[in-house]
Amino acid sequence: MVSIQGVYKRFGRLEVLKGVTFDVGRGEVIVILGPSGSGKSTLLRLVGHLDRLDSGRIYVDGRLVGYVEGGGKLRESSDRVASRARADVGMVFQRFNLFPHLTALGNVTCAPVHVRSLSRRIAAERGKELLRMAGLGEKLDAYPSQLSGGQQQRVAIARALAMDPKVMLFDEATSALDPELVGEVLEVMKQLARGGMTMLVVTHEMGFAREVADRVMFMDDGVMVESNTPAEFFDHPQHDRTKSFLSKIL
């Protein structure tokens, strides 16, 4: 579903990603761990095509992200093509990034109406259903400022799902939440994983990784150090860097 091939990314002089390569199968849930500054978030932003990569390729569902291939060369895709590609990749951010001038339902229906050209009625029906699934059936008309962090993040998940994405990316979706609100967001994510969604999850929630992930990956200093099933990863880490990271957080 997602294929990441030798991806490099630098910001000015700082090399953030140094040749990352892996594949994600359909319906697979990948959890990416790593210390801050290891390039996890940057990798997600590249898959979601919010930043441009310097070299390497990323395919989502067989389609090259952000570039058009022609005659052996890569060209940056136009705004139109790039935005269509982004629509297929759902993203959930650490800071929620809900649209504060729209209600919960407005947030969820905005893109389906304007990007997918759905009728307002159909978008609203689907939006209500998604918000109900996220446990927010009572909060359809609430503005983001009237919602708790956990509720806001669940709206954000519903908003991304409303575009029927092929992949969902979670960029530290629970890191900005009060501890008692983390559970409700993780619960929605688990539900989604069980439903067969392909997911790339950057998180510090080890419990979630152990329970839900098909594979856990460890990134450090811009490279993918280790990748394994959760049981193997946590109980028999192979690399020293993985071991020292796990010893600090477990």
């Binding site: 919010l50 935005s83 269509r84 905005c110 997918r116 575009m163």
Partner: peptide, 22 residues
């Protein structure tokens, strides 16, 4: 906040759409 533009784009909005709607 730049996150607003990120969110709008990740939902597939084009530049001018994101401007107008968000």
């Amino acid at each position: 906040e730049s996150g607003q533009m990120d969110a709008a784009k990740s939902l597939g909005m084009r530049n001018l759409q994101a401007m107008r709607l968000v």
